[in-house]
Amino acid sequence: MTEEQLEKNFQDRIDAEQKIEPREWMPEKYRKHLIRQISQHAHSEVIGMQPEGNWITRAPSMRAKMVLMAKVQDEAGHGLYLYSACETLGINRDELVEQLHTGKAKYASIFNYPTLNWADMGAVGWLVDGAAIVNQVSLQRTSYGPYARGMVKICKEESFHQRQGYEIIAAMAKGTPQQKEMAQDALNRFWWPSLMMFGPHDSDSPNSGNAIKWKIKRESNDVLRQRFIDKTIQQAELIGLTVPDEDLKWNEERQSYDWGEIDWDEFYEVINGNGLANRQRVAQHKKAHDQGAWVREAAKAYAVKQKNKEVLV
């Protein structure tokens, strides 16, 4: 078959909503797009462990500590599924980690914001995981089989995390005046960055064209962002917190909220490395990785010795 025929068959299968599996033919650009997207997603899960990990040693109750650790552990598990899904595309985890360290691969920019009080553990679960879910629910129908199946698993846990996050911030919003202040402060700091998680407006989104055609991406940035806003505003009102957007208004005609404008300068600054935590996040990952080199080498050396022993027996 010619390249052209292969590509046509491929597109026909996509259009018929069939899943593409690892060993099947796929356009090189499809493979590259997926590697970029899935690895970015995996790195986001792993780097996302840090802002929450930041509060494990200060969690204010035994239960809170347990819930937080379990959550961070889930994120690590999501990272693993996603690295595995990515490896089915012919790249290995070492290369992916290397790309994270050199800055070639990105992760969700939201994690370049610092977590400064306990309410942030609520805001991260409620808003950041909440925004992620909207995106991920949509990705359950993505065209690449391993990625779609990974998303099904991940979505279940993420919606649990979102409820946990909301529980934290709701408890604080109902708590002492200082707790309420912390809860509002967390919402103020995380609201806009959460909206930024959906990426540029559709009109400015450079990677969307093929991604929609190949059904890697099923819905546009703006559609997903609006869905998140509409479902989150009421949750904020319910616990007496104010979303920091003066232009926010219910639009009866659209049955949806009108809202203000994202500070795109901030968005691009943070993506380009100028958030409060960018350097720290990658440096921390690299440090743990480098400091563990001797452990990985030892494990490898031990495995080789065991293998040689087996051969001798």
Binding site: I56, T57, K65, M69, V72, L80, Y83, Q291, R296
Partner: peptide, 15 residues
């Protein structure tokens, strides 16, 4: 052990 979180030499060990 909680202090090890995000400090493991490999993701599996963090878990």
């Amino acid at each position: 052990m909680g202090e090890w979180c995000t400090n493991g030499h490999i993701l599996e060990e963090d878990i």
